[in-house]
Design a protein around this nucleic acid. Structure first.
Length: 654
RNA sequence: GGGACCGUAGCUCAGAUGGAUAGAGCAUCUGCCUUCUAAGCAGAGGGUCGCAGGUUCGAGUCCUGCCGGUCCUACCA
């Protein structure tokens, strides 16, 4: 609603300026820091001062006098050196909210958005760094959907890479296990934890036995060709770990539409097709001499502004190695082309799992399946949620598209980057991770799957649930055990998702266990609690045998106007009606953290209100009805932001 | 060497398109539970926004230089 009025104001003002002054200046609509200044502030007089050669204050006064009346606007005042402060008609605004005007989601239009996230190597348990990726990606998906965009969620599985190979080496060479042995392990719980340790052990083994690297080469070769016991192990392990990851993510409410896999990119000749195009359009060239002799490379000038193209081949990126095999980036170019529907090839698909809500996730296969799959790929816009360390490679992928002549697709390829999650030194010590002297002085220590150094996602979730459970137990000892556990789980999810979202994307999170386990202050549970408090009021009302009044009959705009003279009420209502503005700004900034912050600020406003105004004890009937409506409206808005956009459940009680 | 990001309160972080008195949380201190649950509320202290210039009506925000920190710059994925 707020967003709707903001846009209207912007447009009508621009039209007014254009018709009376014949000037086209972008109209900036701000929200003043001081609430006493009104709902909107327009610094447009400052922008006009130069063009009209007049003092901003004089222009502002002229504008205020000439401006035609605007429906819904109570007053326009000149303030400061030339601000125009706009106040809304509170009664009309509230009446419009009550009748549901202006709440329609923004125009859908546009094409399908593809968001790729998670992308965890299927060789070990997921850790907190992976959680940041998935939660960011999933929340961004929810934001897009809330704004009316159709979205397809992809989770790319690199099931033929070095990381999987290393675990295969661990099972086959170090532990001498057969596929049957491994299958038996898979049927046990926490196979991903087993692999976590084995992967670290194998990596360690290479450092003391350099010759063992040959095992990795043999394994990679076997996996790539899909033959023999090594390949069998590779598939067994990767498929099982993918299931573990899907389970872990489902605990946080994160689901996928389709899982493209590297094995299919290879078998279905995606790369071969992309390579033809790259050669044909001369996006890559063959190197005859120098350090890249025998390779197909992409010139640095394609992906670096500074490079001139005359500097030789040293800065070029190798796409095809001298032994004829393709690098990861090459495969990624083919994959990115498929995402836009530019490859002329498609995967086959089979159902992978049906989620509790009935949603189906599909996985790529190399053979046709009888079940009809939805149409995947062919997006109009592609977001790749990948940490910022890979920005160089993402630049190469986009440069590949551009060099092929797909400029528009290159422009719509967005590296949704984020900084890594590291560990605070204090948390390392707490977890028994040995630190070197250097590390001790650093602000944070990088996690490393190779070293087995990190916090596993499921461990963290378990810890959060345990802590929340203790709180719920102490507050609600009479409630059934199962119910308490369910609520503790919801609180844990809220705490974790909020924690990972509260930082902006390019902030390194120095993960601190104590901070992450906190349920007070700017945390998920704080925000959930505000929603629960609103629910409590309504539940208490029902327990007293009362029903909710018919608000639209009881509250006309005159009544709204009377009640909203109280600044506290107006500010809360205003804040609750700004979810559309918050969503639009969070989307345009590409910052899910903005949405989290909005939810927190709204919760803060409600908590203060809740403390100051006992609704059920209110004796004035009109005021009581109004306050009930305010509570209901707040509850609906916050619940929607939490559940639909942030993926944070709202418990029945806390 | 080249590229990117970061430096704001004791700590962890917000400050979109330059705007009015730079904000939260944590920590510290002081109050508030017989009330719609205190996972809460109210209040206090705490800042030369890394440093120096520049751009203009106006700079935490834009530009230049310096200082400090991090990541990337593989025929690994």
């Amino acid at each position: 609603m707020f967003h709707y009025i903001e846009e209207q104001l912007r447009q009508s003002f621009a039209a007014f300026l254009s018709s009376t002054y014949g000037v086209d200046v972008p109209v900036v609509v701000e929200q003043p820091k001081q609430t006493s200044f009104g709902e909107f502030a327009l610094p447009v007089a400052f922008a006009l001062a130069r063009q009209l050669r007049k003092a901003p204050r004089a222009i502002a006064e002229e504008l205020a006098a000439k401006l035609p009346p605007n429906p819904g606007v109570a007053s326009v005042e000149v303030a400061g050196n030339g601000y125009l402060n706009v106040r809304l008609d509170r009664g009309l605004y509230a009446a419009a909210l009550l009748s549901g005007e202006g709440s329609s989601p923004a125009g859908a239009a546009a094409g399908k958005v593809i968001v790729e996230h998670t992308n965890i190597n299927p060789n070990k348990a997921a850790h907190i760094g992976h959680l940041r990726n998935s939660v960011l990606g999933d929340t961004f998906v929810r934001m897009l959907r809330a704004s009316g965009r159709p979205v397809e969620v992809q989770n790319y599985i690199d099931n033929t890479g070095v990381q999987v190979a290393d675990v295969v080496v661990g099972f086959h060479y170090l532990e001498q296990k057969s596929p049957a042995d491994v299958a038996a392990l898979i049927s046990q719980p926490r196979f991903d934890y087993y692999c976590w340790d084995l992967y670290a052990r194998t990596s360690q083994y290479y450092t003391t036995n350099p010759d063992a690297i040959q095992w990795r080469r043999d394994t990679l070769h076997a996996i790539e060709h899909g033959e023999g016991v090594l390949a069998e192990l590779g598939h067994l392990i990767a498929d099982a770990i993918v299931e573990c990851h899907l389970d872990t993510m489902l605990r946080l409410g994160i689901v996928y539409d389709v899982l493209p896999r590297e094995s299919e990119i290879l078998h279905l000749k995606f790369w071969a097709r992309a390579f033809e195009q790259l050669k044909e359009r001369q996006a890559v060239y063959f190197v005859d001499e120098g350090k890249n002799q025998g390779c197909w490379v992409m010139a640095a000038s394609h992906f670096r502004d500074s490079a001139t193209g005359e500097e030789g081949d040293d800065d070029a990126k190798v796409i095809v190695r001298s032994n004829g095999t393709v690098t990861y980036v090459g495969k990624d170019i083919a994959y990115q082309m498929w995402k836009f529907g530019l490859l002329g090839l498609d995967f086959h698909y089979k159902p992978l799992r049906t989620y509790p809500d009935g949603h189906e996730a599909w996985v790529a296969t190399d053979e046709p399946c009888e079940l009809p799959a939805p149409a995947f790929g062919g997006g109009a816009e592609v977001y790749n949620v990948i940490d910022s360390r890979q920005s160089y490679l993402q630049d190469v992928v986009v440069a590949g598209l551009r060099a092929l002549g797909y400029a528009s697709q290159a422009d719509h390829s967005i590296h949704f980057s984020y900084e890594m999650v590291a560990l605070s030194p204090r948390t390392c010590i707490e977890l028994g991770i040995a630190l070197s002297e250097e590390d001790r002085k650093r602000p944070y220590v990088e996690v490393s799957g190779r070293k087995g150094l990190g916090v596993k996602a499921d461990d963290l979730i378990d810890k959060l649930i345990e802590k929340a459970k203790a709180e719920v137990d102490s507050r609600h000892p009479a409630k059934p055990e199962e119910e308490r556990l369910r609520i503790a789980t919801q609180i844990a999810i809220g705490a974790l998702r909020y924690f990972l979202l509260k930082f902006t994307r390019n902030t390194v999170i120095a993960f601190d266990l104590q901070e992450a386990l906190s349920f007070e202050g700017e945390t998920g549970p704080y925000v959930q609690y505000a929603a629960v408090r609103a629910r409590n009021i309504l539940r208490k009302l029902a327990e007293r045998g009362e029903t909710l009044p018919e608000f639209s009959a009881a509250l006309d705009s005159a009544a709204m106007h009377r009640q909203l003279q109280a600044e506290d009420f107006w500010q809360l209502l205003l804040a609750a009606s700004k979810s559309g503005t918050a969503l639009a700004s969070a989307l345009s900034a590409g910052e899910p953290s903005h949405m989290a912050r909005y939810a927190f600020q709204l919760a803060q406003a409600f908590n203060a209100f809740y403390h100051d105004y006992p609704i059920l004890a209110e004796e004035n009937p009109e005021k009581r009805t109004f306050l009930l409506w305010l509570a209901v409206y707040f509850k609906e808005q916050l619940e929607r932001t939490l559940e639909q956009v942030l993926g944070i459940p709202v418990p029945e009680y806390m």
